[in-house]
Design a protein around this nucleic acid. Structure first.
Lengths: 127, 127, 127, 127
DNA sequence: GTGGTCTAGACCACT
DNA sequence: GTGGTCTAGACCACG
């Protein structure tokens, strides 16, 4: 129920938050009705400005993924069904498509690329 | 000998150009002496600002990857040897590492992810 | 091509801007490609903070109504077809539906209500 | 004798309650002495916070429209006479004025707007 | 307690 | 020139 935020990353903080919420919802780990940590809490924990968190939450609300419960914080919207596996794969596709394009421009073979992905997957699941 | 540029992508245009030149050189597809398309040409073809192309070329020149030949435009510098396979793989690694992190957060299995990458590689090499 | 902003209204400023852009697009007065006044311009003209204008533009971009031309301001997105009359009426419907509900609770007759609307329409078109 | 409350509307809940009581009184549908539903009942029925209902009732009491009868809950105060038709129309005017302004910005014709209002009035009186 | 709005000002990135 | 991001702090509205 906590965000992992890297202030030094090139990706802006508010977008890091947005992406994490999207993935948590798509993976079914945050079902409809889940209460999000309050803006002030997130801001304090990560020593960032409340406006930055608010911006992320507001955009997610405009997107329909969050609902405001006035005076009571934000919750995951009921509308969204839990993401099925295909939907989750679709979220990953743009990144892999870009990787494939880069591999082609680098003249790399399929086997090499897939072997490298395997290694990265191992690292990522270790954490 | 043409760039593929997506003005709507999140990656800035000048950086798209830089990365493509780097990959073409690393893969040996653009050996030393290869002439680059003129700034004016690139700008017209993709309906982008000539200043943007100029910025990319200038940065590549400062990096030593390009050389300015008066009257001939820019050419790939003689100094840089084509990257060996490991070096080329290293250029791809950050993207795959990010993809693996996303896959983990989405709760996707290794097999699914690798299958999707295979499909993307097929598409990318068709072009 | 200018916004009319009332800082004293109960409706927040950024929302006043959003609603005006939506109506201008729906009515066909701002076709696709129309350049919007720059954030700094709008902010200066109305003596409001650039962030406020930026918030309106960003939300309209997230909505798909605006597109960013990097380094060159915002334009009306090409995707949206000019609103047909039915679409424009649909934008008005929620307000009229609310008015009808109020009239019913007030026990007012149809004729009275419609006569009042006529008077209001006269006033609004005078301006 | 029940309220219609939409927690998702932009209008705050306590204000929705206040406005409805005002209209029922102005229209004479709730004459002096009418008992209002208890705070607990309203809160349960609409799954809202009792404090919210209490706030609405208290404001209406301060306004003189309601009276607190110990053990009987709140009743419509005797003082207020039912509003005459002109007074009731005046309560509706701001909403219609806003609708007319929107219609003008949308470039809609008088006939269309009035026809739509007729349809909305039909719907509203059906309920 | 919750989030919303606005301000003022800084710094960065892109064209 | 353009918009984007973030900070710091004030005040309001809602429950």
């Amino acid at each position: 129920m906590r965000f992992s935020i890297l202030p030094s990353a090139t990706e802006p903080i508010y977008r890091q938050i947005i992406e994490q919420v999207r993935r948590q919802v798509a993976s079914g780990q945050w079902p409809a009705g889940t209460e999000l940590p309050s803006i002030r809490n997130v801001a304090q924990e990560h020593a960032i400005n409340p406006m930055t968190v608010s911006k992320a939450y507001s955009l997610l609300e405009a997107e329909g993924l969050l609902e405001r419960r006035r005076g009571m914080g934000m919750v995951i919207a009921a509308i969204r069904p839990a993401g099925d596996p295909d939907q989750r794969l679709a979220l990953l596709e743009p990144t892999l498509r870009d990787a494939a394009r880069q591999a082609a421009q680098l003249g790399l073979g399929r086997a090499e690329v897939i072997a490298l992905l395997r290694r990265c997957l191992d690292e990522a699941t270790e954490d």
